[in-house]
Each structure stands twice: as C-alpha cells, then as structure tokens.
C-alpha cells in the first residue's frame, strides 16, 4: 500500500483518482451520448447531455452506408495475417539467434536491434517506391508485408529464450527430436505468455496502424477501418451523431479485446517491458 494507513492521504488519493478517471472517461461518455441523439437534437446548443430523445437513427444510417463492415473485415483480416506472420517469423528468428551458432549471427542480431531506432515513417517513401515496382499498390499484401518486420519483438523474444534453461531441449534431442520438433514441442509451450504478449501488441499495432495503409490503399474496398474513417471524416460534415456512432463502432472491437484479456495485457507490459511497434 503506497499511501499506507493514513486516513486523510487515502481519502485524498481516492478522490483524485475518481476525478481523473472521470475526466478520462468524459470524451467517451460525450461521444456515446451524442451518438444516441438525432442530428437535430445534437445541434441544439446547451450543456445537458439529455437534450433530445434516445434514438438509434445514427447507427442505422452508418450501417446503411455499408462501408463500415467492409473496412472492419479488412482490418480484421490484415491484423490477423500480420500477427500470424510476425509471430511466426519473429519467434523462429529469436530462437535461431538465441541457440544458433551460424556465422554472422551476432552481426545480424546487432543490426536487428539497431533497426529498432529507425522511425517507420523514414521508410515510407522508399517502401512506396518498392510497392510500385512490385506492382503491389492497392493490394492486401502491400499493407501487410512491410508490417511483419518487428525487430523489437525479435529482441524481446530472444531475451526470453536466452533465459530458458537448455537441459530440457537437450533431453529431447537425445531422444532424437529434430530442432524444429524441439522448438515446437518444448520451447514454444514454455513461452506461451510472452508469445501471447507479442501477439497482442502486434495485433493492436496492426489494427490501429494508419500512415502506411493510408498511403498504399486508394481503393475504398481495401481500406482498413482507420483509413476508411479518415476518408469519410470530411464527407460527414456536420453529422456529428453519425460520426460519433461510427467512431464508437470502430472502437468497440479492441475495447472488447481489452476487457477479455485485461490481466494478460497489463502483465505483458510488465514482462516485455515494452510494447507497441
């Protein structure tokens, strides 16, 4: 207990906490309230959140426009593929760096760690050039491929693998198991929490990524949720209830994921020491 037994510090701390949480939740609450009003009621001035009657009109409008489910599907597909590929190549590579002895291992690992410093935005222009050359602009692959390189995740996983005692692996090897078999049946099961943590962060990063998908997709049918919403933002003009409804619908999936995996996410920040991509 940080503030210990003192009654006054506790009461003060509790009050401060409640005030802060209320401030942080206010934008959400305001968006929710707005989304359940009619556009006419929203544009009536006044501070009361209950200016108009409750209505689902704006949600109906948003669904009628039809684009939101397509973008949500694209986001889910892209984030899932990015996560699967990133986790696969990163865990393999981290294990190879941790246990391998091939020539150039240290140099390659050092290069990987150094690249953590590179801001992704630096790569945008040449990557775009590259996608033009590969004729991949406006495809799912153009969005997915550059995102699967996650040096930070390789670094985190390698550090974890380094800490796993090797006796278990050796025992299996004496029984004749192949390297891949050892990795799959012994190392991976031991590493489930860290792999889950990495997966969660990669997924959040891919789901929310804006700049790169924004640059390589022009076709509205291929856009992810963040990109699609950005294109209609201007088109929405003064329909505030609808824009709040679509914002909340787009926010919902990850909030649900967070509620389901809350403990794991909090713990994974602690175990990885870092997150995000």
């Amino acid at each position: 207990m940080l503030l210990g037994a003192g009654r006054w510090p506790r009461a003060l701390g509790g009050t401060a906490l409640i005030v802060m949480a209320a401030v942080w939740l206010l934008p959400f609450v305001w968006a929710v309230v707005t989304s359940f009003q009619s556009e006419a009621d929203v544009t009536t001035p006044g501070l009361s959140p209950f200016k108009g009657a409750f209505t689902l009109e704006s949600y109906r409008e948003v669904f009628d426009r039809g684009n939101l489910p397509v973008w949500a599907f694209n986001s889910l597909l892209i984030a899932a593929v990015v996560t699967a590929l990133t986790v696969a190549i990163s865990t393999l590579a981290a294990y190879g760096f941790s246990r391998g002895t091939f020539r150039g291992r240290r140099a390659l690992m050092a290069l990987t760690v150094a690249s953590i410093m590179v801001p992704p935005q630096l790569l945008i222009v040449p990557l775009f050039r590259q996608m033009l050359a590969f004729d991949l602009v406006d495809t799912y692959w153009a969005v997915i491929l550059p995102q699967i390189v996650a040096p930070m995740m390789v670094f985190i996983l390698k550090r974890f693998f380094d800490g796993i005692p090797r006796e278990l692996e050796e025992a299996a090897r004496i029984d004749g198991a192949s390297d891949l078999r050892v990795f799959w049946s012994i190392v991976l099961p031991l590493s489930r929490p860290i792999v889950a943590a990495v997966g969660i962060f990669v997924f959040i990063g891919a789901w929310n990524n804006f700049l790169w998908p924004f640059i390589v997709t022009n076709d509205s049918d291929l856009m992810t949720l963040p990109v699609g919403l950005a294109t209609v933002k201007d088109a929405y003009g003064t329909v505030y209830a609808q824009s709040m409804a679509s914002a909340l619908l787009a926010a919902l999936p990850l909030i649900v994921v967070f509620l389901l995996f809350q403990r794991r996410i909090v713990r994974s920040v602690a175990t990885t020491g870092l997150g995000g991509t």
Binding site: A93, G96, F97, P126, L145, V149
Partner: peptide, 24 residues
Amino acid sequence: RGRTGLLFVLPFTVAFGLFMVWPI
C-alpha cells in the same frame, strides 16, 4: 545446429532485408 539456426533466422532475415534494410 549451426546451419539450422540459419534456417530459423532465414524468413525473418529475408523480410528484414526487403522491408527494412533495402528501403533504408
């Protein structure tokens, strides 16, 4: 496992080369 280690690292290294080193 000298060369097997290399195989483990290979897929990442290819992606790293294509989408990180090359653009830089």
